[in-house]
Amino acid sequence: MNNLLHACGVELLKARRSKVPLFTALGFSLAPLAGGFFMIVLKDPVMARDMGLISTKAQIFGGTADWPAYFGMLAQAAAVGGMVLFSFVASWVFGREFSDRTIKDLLALPTPRRSIVLAKFVVVALWALFLTLIVIILGLGIGALVGLPGAGSGVFLQGILRITACAGLTLITVTPVAFFAGVGRGYLAPTGMAILLLVCAQLVGATGWGEYFPWSIAALYSGAAGPASAQLSLVSLAIVLITGILGLVATIRWWERADQTR
């Protein structure tokens, strides 16, 4: 346990000293900003045109400007945007040791490799939590500034829980990305894998089998395919958990057993 705590401290130090958390925070901040923008447009299209926020030729399609709709947008951002950003975070946390060739400093230590890998996952999880909190806090602020109707403690609680759940489901499914960071020995392979998974998630989601594909489940639950599919079955939850566990175990096994030539 002490080893894990020390390793967590080390990984947090590396993350803190890097500019990558700042970039990911800026990236995730776009979600509530974009959501807020759409809410303004939906709330009063005429004013939006007068203010120059949208072109006079822009067609405004259906949608309501209220808190539940806004939370739905943020949940989709946490699921789909989270897949991109959390994968990027995992790629960086794991892949940088290979790209920077610092992996060899971590392989023959009294601290087991398993603790180092677990510490890296802890940092990815904390990082994802930090990004989710940014979306929630910034989202609440922007929603209040826009003056969205339909506020209420029940709506807020449900909205925040859904955003958190979508982020959590997404986070669990990025463990295989960490495995590919090891196998690919850098950032490139896991980033490519994350993009491939995202494309597959879209395709599988469109065929109607999304609830059985781990990387589609969070997006479906966020309501990206409509309110009818925004349910989380036990089977889907089990698929996500199994995927997360498999990714975690495979990453640990790879760090412990694969030949490390970098």
């Binding site: 080390v10 130090l13 590396k14 920077d100 060739r101």
Partner: peptide
């Protein structure tokens, strides 16, 4: 060829290894 965590200072690089060597 040795490599170091580039964003950390020399002292921090050594501190990382110290913490991983209880």
């Amino acid at each position: 060829t040795p490599h170091a965590w580039p964003e950390l200072t020399v002292r921090e690089n050594l501190e990382v290894l110290r913490r991983l060597r209880p």
